Amino acid sequence: MATVSPAERLLDLVIALRNARAPMTRAQIRAQVNGYHDAENDIAFERMFERDKVALKELGIPLLTITDATHGDEFGYRIDVSDYDLPPIELSPEEIGVLGVAAQVWDGADLASPARRGLTKLLAVAPPGTIRPAAQSLRLPTPDEQFDTLLAAVGERRLATFSYRAAHSGATEVRRVEPWRLLVSDGAWYLHGYDLGRDGERQFRLSRIVGAVRVDEPGTGEQHPAGPAPENQRTQAEAILLVRPDRATALRLRAVSVEPGARPGYDRVVLAPGDLGDLASLVAGLADAVVVLDPPELADAVRTRLRAVAALDGADA
């Protein structure tokens, strides 16, 4: 049986306590909540459960301990529904579609299963006609194995140390980095941060990290303030594109307007001003289905990327 991650176990504990008709005893929690079967013995279970109790309280989830009125011993546990329930939330089909796209970020990462489960429950009660994730796929790359560790390092401001293979030489060197953010560029995940050895901000492609990532204590990655995200040049006007029908879903998700059949064989798609590099990379990957009409700087950036790919193909031939 596969080991359940701590995050998934915690989510299952919340669901079980939230839906239990009566307080759950420790024995019931161990038997019924997915993840506690990984405990080798009673002591291991107690440690896991105590950690999860602390985690729930830190998240602001009102876990109540029910004690025996006579002896004061712990009898069971429940979540106070009156403090935990949120007001009804009504989401439009478009908003649910955006949440579906966002859930794809966790594919292959620690929260992949909870994200899929939450999205499935959301779609189960969604109104008819809601955009389905399968039809509106953002095609985000699957996170690399170092993703979870680096994401935690960013959030907790921990210095990260790892071996990194240079793209130009293939040489591997140890890099010590203050991690700022994780981002996607040209179909791959990158770490953006401050390289202490190079004394400057750098980007590191996660697929070139060799072996495990080591992290220091929380609060160690605060020596240099985070700089702006790379490639932050923005288009000054709306992007006007011609897009083949039923293609380029990622672009349609960003659209301000879509005019089906505006030209023979094409829809007219308009996008709001945004990050030039990000949009150019996206359009270049869909070049067989998209024509850039405006602005000129976007068309130039797309052509630059396509020429670079062509040059690489020629070099490999």
Rank of each mutant, 00 (worst) to 15 (best):
A2S: 12
P6I: 10
A7Y: 04
D12T: 10
A16W: 08
R18V: 09
R18M: 06
R21F: 10
P23E: 12
T25Q: 03
A27S: 13
A31M: 06
A31S: 13
A31C: 09
A31V: 05
G35N: 12
H37S: 11
E40Q: 14
I43V: 11
F45Q: 15
M48L: 15
R51C: 11
V54D: 13
A55K: 14
E58V: 14
G60K: 09
P62H: 04
L63C: 14
L63V: 15
T67L: 04
T70V: 09
T70W: 10
T70E: 08
T70G: 09
D73R: 04
F75P: 04
R78F: 12
S82Y: 00
S82V: 02
Y84E: 10
D85G: 05
L86D: 09
P87T: 09
P87E: 08
P87Y: 05
P88H: 01
L91V: 02
S92Y: 08
E94P: 08
E94A: 12
I96V: 13
V98A: 11
G108V: 02
A109G: 03
L111I: 01
S113P: 10
R116I: 05
G118I: 03
L122M: 06
A124S: 13
A124L: 14
V125T: 11
P128N: 00
T130M: 11
T130K: 02
Q136F: 13
L138I: 15
L138S: 13
T142I: 06
P143F: 06
E145M: 10
Q146T: 11
D148N: 12
D148Q: 04
T149G: 03
L151H: 00
L151I: 06
A153K: 01
V154P: 04
V154H: 01
G155Q: 03
T161L: 03
R165M: 15
H168M: 12
S169R: 12
A171D: 14
T172V: 15
T172A: 02
T172Q: 05
E178C: 01
E178G: 01
W180T: 04
S185F: 00
S185A: 11
A188G: 08
Y190H: 00
Y190R: 00
G193K: 00
R198Y: 08
G200V: 07
G200K: 06
E201W: 01
R202E: 05
R202K: 02
R202N: 04
Q203W: 04
F204G: 00
R205V: 01
S207N: 15
V210Y: 07
G211N: 01
V213C: 05
R214Y: 05
V215G: 08
D216Q: 01
E217P: 01
P218V: 13
G219S: 02
T220H: 07
T220F: 09
G221V: 06
G221I: 05
Q223V: 09
P228F: 12
P230I: 01
N232V: 04
R234G: 00
R234S: 03
R234Q: 03
Q236P: 14
E238A: 14
R244E: 07
D246M: 02
R252T: 02
A255H: 07
V256I: 06
V256R: 11
P260W: 10
G261M: 02
A262I: 03
R268D: 12
R268G: 11
V269R: 02
L271I: 06
L276T: 02
D278Y: 07
L279D: 08
L279Q: 09
V283W: 01
L286F: 14
D288N: 05
A289Q: 15
P295S: 14
A299S: 07
D300F: 03
R307F: 06
R307Y: 05
L312R: 13
D316G: 12
